[in-house]
């Protein structure tokens, strides 16, 4: 009995957690008139209350059409976001996979110290390094450009850490055996490292996508030109007066993230778990 109650509670919580997402999905299908009627108390401070029905009375895809075909600014920010995320992730792969491999397969002086340094850097919040990043970007003339957002993120320590964990599981004796048989280091990296570390690499990609897709702080601090902004900053700019657009834009922002989430959930979990597992 107690167990059933607990289970019920668990499912109820899970439902409540997903409820906000459901609200946005259904809200985006409501007609402009319905939205105006139900949200008007938010706008003019009258005494009425929001009158929200879960299901749309007259479902419509109008807002999506309007947003996708007659709002060029939305188009620009959408591709800004795509570009930023894609460039960061590609760059991270080129930088962090070899770095993780170096940590896992070679031994060099100060290795442990350096790795601790990486962990600490990974954990520093953005605000602490905001000023120093600003000064660097300023001296490279990269303020107000996408490069200024992308380049520092490429050298993030987080993917190195995640990927290192999966490389670390390769038995050392396997590598030693291959080395005695005359395999080159490059051969080891490509034929043993990459295949056995692929789950770690995918975890880093999934976690990275979710992180950079809703990036707020760096573009807010370093991009003055609004036409360079990513979706995550543009979205709150659509006022509640244009609630239909705001809902539709939210759904479109949500879609790639959910998509990546559903495909990569197993890797996501592995990635999270790898940070908890003892070495």
């Amino acid at each position: 009995m107690l167990k059933k109650l607990g289970l019920l509670l668990l499912y109820l919580t899970a439902f409540l957690i997903c409820l906000p997402i459901l609200l946005v999905l259904l809200g985006s299908l409501k007609s402009t008139r319905e939205l105006v009627e139900s949200l008007s108390p938010l706008l003019d401070d009258t005494n009425g209350m929001v009158n929200w029905t879960l299901l749309p009375l007259y479902p419509t895809l109008n807002h999506f059409f309007k947003l996708l075909f007659s709002t060029p600014s939305f188009f620009i920010v959408f591709w800004n976001s795509m570009k930023i995320v894609f460039c960061i992730l590609t760059g991270q792969m080129f930088i962090s996979v070899p770095a993780a491999w170096a940590f896992a397969s070679f031994s060099f002086p100060f290795q442990k110290l350096l790795f601790t340094l990486y962990i600490i850097l990974m954990l520093m919040p953005f605000q602490v390094i905001m000023l120093s990043s600003y000064l660097v970007l300023d001296s490279f003339h990269m303020l107000d450009t996408h490069r200024g957002i992308i380049l520092p993120a490429i050298f993030s320590a987080y993917p190195v850490f995640i990927i290192y964990k999966s490389f670390h599981q390769i038995p050392k004796s396997l590598l030693e055996a291959a080395r005695t048989d005359g395999a080159s280091e490059l051969y080891l990296f490509i034929h043993i490292g990459i295949p056995s570390g692929s789950s770690g690499i995918l975890s880093a990609l999934v976690l990275g996508f979710l992180e950079y897709w809703s990036l707020i702080e760096p573009p807010l601090a370093f991009l003055k030109d609004k036409s360079l902004w990513p979706l995550s900053l543009y979205l709150p700019e659509i006022g509640i007066e244009q609630s239909g657009m705001a809902f539709a834009a939210s759904v479109i922002t949500l879609t790639p993230a959910i998509f990546v989430f559903l495909i990569g959930q197993d890797y996501l979990e592995q990635g999270i778990m790898s940070s908890a597992v003892k070495e």
Binding site: F15, L42, V50, S232, A257, F261
Partner: peptide, 19 residues
């Protein structure tokens, strides 16, 4: 279900919070 919020961008959440 519990992990899903990780995929929700902050801006989307704010819209819901306002409502």
């Amino acid at each position: 279900a519990f992990l899903l919020p990780m995929a929700v961008p902050a801006a989307t959440l704010v819209l819901i919070w306002k409502m």
